[in-house]
């Protein structure tokens, strides 16, 4: 470390301890035998076993995964279109409004997004009778809307940093613009689309606030289930569930990090 100073090392150690001690303590207590979440009663895998026998958890997980996969796919399609429009299609009437609408969901507080979408769904239901029931479809639409903004940003930055000469060469050689899009541009931005899909998937899996607004009876996602339980306090089975999620995310991120390093070196 250049300019190595004791002060920086101290702050870094403190900062990382601050970030990781809470997570480590959750994992530690998930192996607690006692049903009192914070009193140590010996090592046990009991709560992991109970987790897999809990139908409510499994149902909520299944719903969350379905919503996440569907909304991430829609968000990737719509976000890629939006990114292309902003970078490659030049100026058109309404462009300012378009780029404003694209980035706004990124900075909007979740309670406002949630409330506004719920009011839309209620109004639509009165006008045209759809959506008759709030749940899978309404949460998927809400998640698609805010996740497509993230995808658009990722695709946009890939397109701006990309060399346009390949597309121009194809065009000069007589390739039709639509074929250039499908044969050259899209294959080149596939990594950005994959990254955008993963981001959208994670954001959807994590979201509690917006889903709580736009869901209805019966539509309980995993975060909604966890929230309804932890409102009453710390419970050992949620510790086990949290630990599993921490484990999966860490392994996934480490693998993609290692893959990225390998490719760049």
């Amino acid at each position: 470390m250049q300019h190595r100073s004791r002060f920086l090392l101290t702050v870094l150690s403190f900062g990382y301890a601050f970030l990781y001690i809470p997570l480590i303590s959750v994992v530690f207590y998930s192996f607690n035998k006692s049903s009192l979440a914070t009193v140590w009663g010996g090592f046990s895998l009991r709560w992991y076993g109970e987790l897999f026998r809990n139908d409510q958890v499994l149902e909520a997980l299944a719903l969350s995964l379905q919503i996440a996969a569907t909304s991430a796919t829609f968000a990737t399609i719509l976000g890629t279109m939006a990114g292309l429009v902003l970078v490659r299609f030049g100026r058109f009437r309404g462009r300012t409004l378009f780029s404003g609408m694209i980035v706004s969901p990124l900075v909007m507080p979740e309670v406002i997004t949630g409330l506004s979408l719920l009011l839309l769904f209620v109004s639509l239901q009165q006008l045209i009778g759809w959506p008759a029931q709030r749940g899978f479809s309404t949460i998927t639409i809400a998640h698609t809307t805010f996740a497509m903004a993230y995808v658009a940003v990722v695709v946009q930055s890939r397109l701006t940093s990309m060399d346009e000469s390949l597309e121009e060469a194809a065009m000069d050689l007589g390739c039709r613009p639509l074929r250039v899009l499908f044969d050259i541009t899209l294959p080149l931005i596939v990594p950005a689309m994959v990254a955008g899909w993963l981001l959208a998937f994670t954001l959807s899996l994590d979201d509690l606030v917006i889903a709580s607004f736009v869901s209805g009876p019966g539509g309980t996602t995993l975060p909604m289930y966890i929230f309804s339980k932890v409102k009453l306090g710390v419970t050992p089975d949620i510790n086990a569930l949290a630990s599993l999620i921490i484990l999966i995310v860490s392994v996934g991120l480490l693998l993609s990090w290692a893959a990225m390093r390998k490719r760049s070196s």
């Binding site: 990781y20 809470p22 303590s25 959750v26 966890i226 932890v230 949290a242 991120l253």
Partner: peptide, 23 residues
Amino acid sequence: LLIVLPFWISFLLRVYAWMGLLN
């Protein structure tokens, strides 16, 4: 990577982790 990692772990669970610490 260690800064980004908590960001990918659900917000709700990170807040929940503090409940166990501050109880």
